[in-house]
């Protein structure tokens, strides 16, 4: 615990912490953007959904560490952490968004159509609020998972300025106190990210 509270005095502490958080956010934003766009496409077109379904299943089933090692052969370590995070986060978000879109109340959509509500107001009045609770719940879980995967990729590929890199160097030099302190920091960051999403959800989804 003492090590944990003095970690901030370490050289490159903030660079390591914020670069890992930055990579996590970048992965998450990419996963989210691809997930929502492709889920909308899949919801509108059955052939597209059938085409994407096996790809997403393969991505979901692929062992994380194996993906890290395979990608390590093709790209620099820093970029690789982002790509791995995306490959893990995207299928989860995509599947959740597809399910949420399929569960939008069809009667509400019919009602809007009968009352001649324009398509944009149907999207923002019915579709978006209907999927928002799922979007937040999926985001909360995926953000934590993405952080874990990014750190794992950083550990395995020895990214110097990163949480994973710090954990790796603590492990290499058998400094167990440091190892535990950096691990605890990763848990705290994950916890803070989850709380952040929960707070935003509470502010936005006021009707639940």
């Amino acid at each position: 615990m003492e090590r944990f509270f003095t970690l901030w005095q370490e050289k490159n502490f903030y660079n390591s912490l914020f670069l890992t958080i930055g990579r996590t956010f970048l992965c998450f934003v990419l996963s989210f953007a691809f997930g929502i766009v492709l889920a909308v496409v899949a919801n509108m077109s059955k052939p597209c959904e059938k085409f994407l379904s096996p790809i997403v299943s393969v991505l979901r089933a692929a062992p994380t560490v194996a993906v890290i090692y395979i990608l390590y052969a093709f790209m620099p370590a820093k970029k690789m952490a982002i790509v791995v995070g995306f490959l893990i986060g995207f299928p989860i978000l995509y599947s959740q968004f597809v399910t949420a879109l399929s569960e939008v109340d069809k009667n509400l959509v019919t009602m809007a159509k009968i009352y001649k509500v324009p398509i944009l107001r149907r999207i923002f009045g019915i579709y978006v609020p209907s999927i928002l609770p799922t979007v937040f719940d999926a985001s909360r879980a995926t953000l934590s998972l993405t952080l874990k995967v990014v750190i794992a990729a950083e550990i395995l590929t020895l990214v110097p300025l990163s949480l994973g890199g710090k954990i790796q160097s603590a492990y290499s030099s058998f400094e167990i106190a440091y190892l535990l302190a950096w691990t605890l920091l990763a848990i705290v960051v994950s916890f803070v990210l989850e709380i952040m999403v929960s707070v935003i959800k509470k502010a936005v989804v006021r009707w639940k």
């Binding site: 009667n107 509400l108 809007a112 009352y115 609020p129 209907s130 009707w207």
Partner: peptide, 22 residues
């Protein structure tokens, strides 16, 4: 205008907004 078997109100909108929506 149409009244469904169930009220078919938009859960994220207040009563006032539900009526105003159409």
């Amino acid at each position: 205008s149409y009244i469904f078997q169930s009220p078919t109100l938009i859960p994220s909108m207040t009563v006032e907004k539900n009526v105003e929506y159409v």
